[in-house]
Computed example of a mutant assay.
Amino acid sequence: MDIPRSFTIRESGHRIHNPLDGTKVALLGEVLRLTPGSHMLDLACGSGEMLCTWARDHGLTGTGVDLSATFLAGAKARAAELGVADRVGFVHGDAAGHVADEPVDIAACIGAAWIGDGVPGTVDLLRRNLRPGGLLLIGHPFWRLDPPDQAAVEGSHATSRDEYLPLPELVEQFGGLGCDVVEMVLADQDSWDRYAAAQWLNTRRWLDENPDDELAPAMRAELDTEPARYVRYQREYLGWGVFALMDR
């Protein structure tokens, strides 16, 4: 049970597997006014950077769940590096359907709404883990600009225009699910660049070291086209943010 190896290759140098950079992750922790001793569940936590740094900076405890054994090894190493290994733990498993033994103060899914088959199902899954009055965090894409054609849609890694909503409609969707939007931190083009462009360097270095790997032709073809596709489409049309919600 693991994620596709191509994803691990692309993001092998990443601590944060989404378009928020470290400064924005820190900002999110600050604006949420996190309370020491609060317990957080991070579903599809990746390399655990948010959980580990918030444990260090805000005194949280918590658990991260992810399918990637590689990323979780990095998360455990990061927890030890930051001196929080006694306060955070990581579970190798499928975050879809995961329900904690006890309700938590903060339930998060940052950039992996497929675990609930979309935003409504992911909000419902997070609610099942949350104590009354707790914070629900969801990271999700939205259209910055209306894509003019199917090429722009597919160039933004979507299959159809309906796959994402414009930002106002996404915020309205949260309201329709019975949530108050109480904070948000959005990626900007620079933090998108840091996320996307780092994948190209990771891929190139992997190709140099593994020219005979069975994945090498596909990764080579991806690197040939991905930078231009990103700057032509995704950078212009697709936004991304983390939204803090509370049940009404």
Rank of each mutant, 00 (worst) to 15 (best):
40 M>R: 10
187 A>K: 06
219 M>S: 08
86 D>S: 13
18 N>Q: 11
102 E>D: 15
213 D>H: 14
244 A>R: 13
121 G>K: 08
154 E>A: 10
94 D>Y: 12
57 D>N: 11
38 S>A: 15
101 D>K: 09
69 A>Q: 15
128 R>G: 14
203 T>C: 10
198 A>H: 08
115 I>E: 05
61 T>W: 05
211 P>I: 06
171 V>S: 07
10 R>N: 02
150 Q>D: 11
27 L>E: 15
32 L>N: 01
7 F>I: 12
28 L>N: 11
247 D>F: 07
131 R>C: 02
30 E>V: 05
211 P>C: 10
217 P>W: 09
164 Y>A: 10
188 D>M: 11
123 V>Y: 01
42 D>W: 08
104 V>H: 01
84 V>D: 01
243 F>H: 01
31 V>P: 02
137 L>P: 01
236 E>I: 14
53 T>Y: 03
163 E>W: 09
20 L>D: 13
210 N>W: 00
128 R>K: 13
230 Y>C: 12
224 D>Y: 00
215 L>V: 02
216 A>I: 07
118 G>P: 04
156 S>A: 13
230 Y>D: 09
71 F>A: 14
24 K>A: 13
212 D>F: 06
117 D>K: 15
118 G>R: 12
194 R>I: 05
19 P>S: 11
58 H>I: 03
22 G>D: 07
59 G>L: 06
233 Y>R: 03
206 W>G: 09
203 T>H: 00
126 L>K: 06
54 W>I: 04
46 G>S: 12
37 G>S: 07
167 L>Q: 10
230 Y>N: 06
4 P>I: 11
114 W>S: 03
4 P>G: 09
217 P>H: 00
7 F>C: 05
242 V>S: 07
222 E>K: 14
213 D>P: 07
226 E>R: 11
160 S>T: 15
174 F>W: 12
120 P>L: 14
153 V>Q: 06
137 L>T: 02
97 G>A: 11
63 T>L: 15
11 E>F: 12
122 T>Q: 13
58 H>N: 01
92 H>G: 10
229 R>Y: 04
150 Q>H: 11
184 M>I: 03
176 G>S: 09
228 A>K: 02
120 P>R: 10
208 D>H: 09
214 E>R: 12
43 L>A: 04
25 V>W: 04
187 A>T: 10
137 L>I: 08
215 L>F: 01
112 A>Y: 03
210 N>T: 02
90 F>S: 03
166 P>I: 07
160 S>G: 14
44 A>F: 04
186 L>E: 10
193 D>C: 08
236 E>Q: 13
230 Y>E: 08
15 R>G: 07
127 R>F: 00
145 L>A: 15
122 T>I: 09
99 V>N: 05
119 V>N: 00
56 R>P: 00
128 R>W: 02
160 S>W: 03
160 S>H: 10
209 E>C: 02
111 G>I: 13
179 C>Y: 05
40 M>G: 07
146 D>E: 14
